[in-house]
Simulated scan of single mutants.
Amino acid sequence: MGSRMVGRAGGVLVGGLTALLAGCSGHHAPPRPPAPTQPFVAFNACLVTGPSGLDAAGPGSEAWAGTQAATGSLHARASYVTAAPTALPDVLGALLLRHCTVVVAAGDTSAGGQFTAAVAEFGRAHPEQRVLLVEAPADVAGNVRPIAGGDGLADRVRQAVTAAAGGN
């Protein structure tokens, strides 16, 4: 009786394996194509503003709009921080640690020149860093690109950030 049980169990086992293998024959559904993905650019655009931040009266809000417009089409990341001119060197250093590909600086360039001087010094100290300075004088460091303020600022910032991404 023991051998009949083993024989039956073996037959069930062989039959089950045969059915399983038959189900694994070459009759599979075709593989699904991968899900569509959006392209990602490893690109961070960081805006630093003066104490007025994104106040509509200052250049920060327009620079932020342009930065967001550029990074949205690039599938990149945009962020901003507000800094007093005296804290600007430390804040700019922190943006380096955050791996900002381009730094957009839009602060009060008329307040004794502290904001402009700090951004220009940052540019000289980090020549590999791309820096855009709104309302900058023409004689800023070579890697600090001046962006004219006024009407159309958001579009000029968008174009400059997009161009900076092309060199990424």
Results as ranks from 00 to 15, higher is better:
1 M>A: 15
1 M>Y: 10
4 R>N: 12
5 M>W: 14
5 M>A: 15
6 V>K: 12
8 R>C: 09
9 A>E: 08
11 G>A: 15
11 G>H: 10
12 V>H: 10
15 G>F: 09
16 G>I: 08
17 L>S: 08
18 T>N: 00
21 L>G: 11
22 A>L: 15
28 H>K: 14
30 P>G: 11
32 R>A: 15
34 P>E: 15
37 T>M: 09
37 T>S: 14
37 T>P: 00
37 T>K: 13
38 Q>C: 06
41 V>C: 03
41 V>Q: 07
42 A>H: 08
43 F>M: 02
44 N>I: 08
46 C>M: 03
47 L>E: 01
47 L>I: 10
50 G>K: 08
52 S>P: 00
52 S>R: 13
55 D>R: 11
60 G>Y: 08
61 S>M: 11
61 S>W: 04
62 E>C: 02
62 E>M: 11
65 A>F: 04
66 G>P: 04
68 Q>E: 15
68 Q>I: 10
69 A>L: 11
71 T>E: 07
77 R>N: 09
77 R>P: 00
77 R>Q: 12
79 S>P: 00
79 S>K: 02
83 A>D: 09
83 A>R: 11
83 A>M: 07
85 P>A: 06
86 T>D: 14
90 D>N: 11
91 V>Q: 13
97 L>F: 09
98 R>Y: 04
100 C>P: 02
100 C>K: 01
102 V>C: 10
103 V>N: 01
103 V>H: 01
105 A>K: 05
105 A>R: 07
105 A>G: 06
106 A>M: 06
106 A>W: 05
108 D>I: 03
108 D>C: 05
109 T>H: 08
112 G>Y: 10
113 G>M: 10
114 Q>F: 06
115 F>Y: 15
115 F>R: 00
115 F>N: 05
116 T>M: 03
116 T>K: 03
117 A>P: 09
117 A>N: 13
118 A>C: 07
119 V>H: 06
119 V>D: 04
120 A>H: 13
122 F>C: 03
122 F>T: 05
123 G>S: 04
123 G>M: 06
123 G>N: 04
124 R>Y: 05
125 A>S: 14
127 P>E: 09
128 E>Q: 14
128 E>K: 12
131 V>H: 05
131 V>A: 03
132 L>W: 05
138 A>S: 15
139 D>F: 10
139 D>G: 14
140 V>Q: 10
141 A>E: 14
141 A>L: 02
143 N>H: 08
144 V>P: 08
144 V>K: 08
145 R>H: 12
146 P>S: 14
146 P>K: 15
147 I>T: 05
149 G>A: 09
149 G>I: 12
150 G>V: 13
151 D>L: 14
152 G>I: 05
152 G>M: 07
152 G>E: 01
153 L>Q: 08
155 D>Q: 15
156 R>S: 09
157 V>P: 10
159 Q>N: 12
159 Q>I: 11
159 Q>F: 03
162 T>R: 11
164 A>P: 02
164 A>R: 04
165 A>Y: 01
165 A>H: 00
166 G>W: 01
